[in-house]
C-alpha cells in the first residue's frame, strides 16, 4: 500500500486541481504505463515473429546459413503442390467435423436438455447429462488422440473387437491405416471431442431466454420442433455465431490429433495445413516453404473471420430492422 510509482504520484497531483469531478482520471496518459509490460511482450512474441514469418515466406532457407530471397517462388510452388491442395481440402473436412456436425447436434441436444429434460426431469438430470457430453472437451487433444488411436488399433483394438463380437466382422478394419477410412475416422473423433462445446454454450444461452416465450408457445400447442425453430434458434443466434466462428478457427488450426493419430498419413490422406507447415519447418528444413503455408493459413483464417463477423452484423441489422 505504500508501494507507489513516481509517475503515478505526479499524475495524481497534477490531475486533482485540473478537473472538476466529471470524468476524473479519464484519458490520463498515466494509463499508458500499464500497457508497457504487455506491449513489450506482445511485440516480442507476436508482432516480430509474425512479421519475420511473412518475410521468410519470400525466401529459400534451410534454417541455417545464408537466406536467399526468392520472391514469390514459394507461393507459385505451393499452388502446384498437390499436398497443399489436399491439406486444405482436409481442412474443409475438419470444418465439417468440428463446426457443422457438432453445432447441428449441439443445438438439438442443448434444446432437448433444456426444454424437455430440464423441465420434466429436473435441472440436476440435465446438468449431469451435459457434463457427460462435455467431458471429452477437457482432455488434452494429444491424450484424446492416444485414447482413440488405441481403440482403433487394427489388431485387438476395442472397436474391431466390438464389431466382431456382434457379428459384424466384415466392418472391422485398419481404421487409421487405410486411406479410405483414415479421414472419416479422424473426423468422427473430432466430432466426439468437439460436441460438448456447443452443448454447454447453447444451454447457457438458453438460460437467458425469457421462459414466458416457451410457456406461451406451449400453451398455444406448439410442439418441441416448433418451439425449437421459432424460439430456440432465433434467440440464441449470437451464441451460434460465436461457436461457429471460434470452432472454425480451431478447425483450421488442427494439429495435435493429426500428429498423434496419423502423422498426416497414410500418404497425405489426413494431412492438414498446420501439420504440412510443421513438416516443412522441422522435418524437411524448408523454412521458407513452411512460412508460406503458415502465411496462407493465417490469411484464410482472417478472411473467414471477417466474413463471419460481416454476416453476423448483417443479420443483426436485419433483425432490428424488422
Amino acid at each position: 500500500m505504500t508501494v507507489n510509482t513516481a509517475p503515478d504520484k505526479a499524475a495524481t497531483r497534477s490531475r486533482r486541481p485540473a478537473r472538476n469531478g466529471a470524468g476524473i482520471g479519464e484519458r490520463s496518459p498515466v494509463y499508458w504505463l500499464y500497457l508497457i509490460p504487455g506491449g513489450l511482450l506482445f511485440t516480442a512474441v507476436i508482432v516480430v515473429p509474425f512479421v519475420m514469418n511473412i518475410g521468410l515466406s519470400f525466401a529459400d532457407w534451410p534454417g541455417v546459413g545464408e537466406i536467399s530471397w526468392t520472391g514469390l517462388d514459394n507461393y507459385s510452388r505451393l499452388f502446384s503442390d498437390d499436398t497443399f491442395w489436399t491439406s486444405f481440402r482436409n481442412s474443409v473436412a475438419m470444418i465439417i467435423a468440428m463446426v457443422v456436425v457438432p453445432t447441428a447436434i449441439g443445438l438439438v441436444l442443448a434444446s432437448v436438455l433444456f426444454d424437455i429434460i430440464g423441465k420434466r426431469f429436473g435441472a440436476r438430470t440435465a446438468s449431469t447429462l451435459r457434463a457427460m457430453y462435455y467431458l471429452p472437451q477437457i482432455l488434452p487433444v494429444a491424450v484424446a488422440g492416444i485414447v482413440w488411436g488405441w481403440i482403433l488399433r487394427p489388431q485387438n483394438g476395442a472397436l474391431n473387437t466390438l464389431l466382431e463380437s456382434v457379428g459384424l466382422d466384415g466392418l472391422a478394419q485398419n481404421w487409421l491405416g487405410d486411406p479410405n477410412t483414415a479421414l472419416p475416422s479422424v473426423m468422427a473423433i473430432l466430432v466426439w471431442v468437439q460436441i460438448g462445446y456447443p452443448v454447454v454454450i447453447f444451454m447457457a444461452a438458453l438460460q437467458r431466454v425469457d421462459p414466458d416465450l416457451y410457456e406461451a408457445a406451449e400453451l398455444d400447442g406448439a410442439g418441441w420442433w416448433r418451439r425449437f425453430r421459432a424460439i430456440t434458434i432465433p434467440q440464441i443466434r449470437p451464441e451460434m455465431f460465436v461457436v461457429a466462428l471460434t470452432a472454425t478457427i480451431a478447425s483450421m488450426k488442427v494439429f495435435g490429433p493429426i500428429f498423434v493419430l496419423t502423422g498426416g498419413g497414410p500418404g497425405d490422406a489426413t494431412n492438414v495445413p498446420s501439420y504440412f507447415a510443421y513438416q516443412h519447418f522441422f522435418e524437411r528444413a524448408n523454412v521458407g516453404y513452411g512460412s508460406a503455408i503458415a502465411t496462407i493459413l493465417t490469411l484464410i483464417i482472417i478472411v473467414l473471420s471477417v466474413i463471419f463477423i460481416r454476416f453476423q452484423a448483417r443479420s443483426e441489422r436485419k433483425d432490428t430492422g424488422r
Binding site: V45, I46, V48, P49, F50, M52, N53, L56, G63, I249, M252, K253, F255, P273, S274, A277, Y278, F281, V287, G290, S291, I293, A294, T295, L297, T298, I301, I302, S305
Partner: peptide
C-alpha cells in the same frame, strides 16, 4: 486467432 504455425519458426529461431 493467429495460427501458432505462423509464429513458431521465428520464435524457435
Amino acid at each position: 486467432m493467429l495460427p501458432h504455425e505462423a509464429l513458431i519458426y521465428p520464435l524457435f529461431y
